[in-house]
């Protein structure tokens, strides 16, 4: 069986044609312009993953929310658990871009990276 997917690795957005075997496992892909497209196609069939970004509350920060992202891509089936767990999360200012943070989900612990430096309120940048 064949499936058509758009590669999301870069803004080129290659049109992938993915061939699968009888057990619906990845067989081969055409239409990708680079090797990353093949990796994406393989993963998209076996275990689709995404980097997820959201914001969490900052206490005493110069802004109210700080953006975070998962350090690595997580399974699509874990997205809801991650977002729900991040909703109740808060950090104290200051936080710096690149700081690592762990969010405890029901399914697993999610390693996240802070995406913006937020100093304490009234601190001059």
């Amino acid at each position: 069986m064949d499936v058509n997917k758009i590669c999301i690795v870069c803004p080129k957005g290659c049109h992938l044609n993915i061939e699968m075997n009888r057990d619906n496992a990845f067989l081969r892909v055409t239409g990708n312009l680079c090797i990353r497209g093949e990796q994406y196609a393989r993963e998209e069939i076996d275990n689709p993953k995404r980097i997820i970004t959201t914001t969490i509350k900052v206490i005493e920060g110069s802004i109210k929310r700080v953006p975070i992202k998962t350090a690595t891509s997580i399974s699509k089936s874990q997205i809801e658990d991650f977002i729900t767990s991040a909703t109740s999360m808060a950090v104290n200012a200051p936080v710096y871009m690149g700081d690592v943070l762990t969010i405890d989900g029901i399914q697993m612990k999610y390693i996240c990276v802070i995406g913006r430096t937020v100093l304490k309120v009234d601190t001059k940048l």
Binding site: P11, I51, T53, T54, T55, P67, K69, M97, G115, R116
Partner: peptide, 25 residues
């Protein structure tokens, strides 16, 4: 960029996938 918290920025300039705030910073 500060409000574009999704990733996908910087693939050409930094050769990695950044969020908007990361690119800005």
């Amino acid at each position: 960029l500060n409000q574009c918290i999704h990733n996908g920025f910087g693939l050409t300039r930094y050769n990695e996938e950044l969020t908007g705030p990361e690119y800005a910073e």
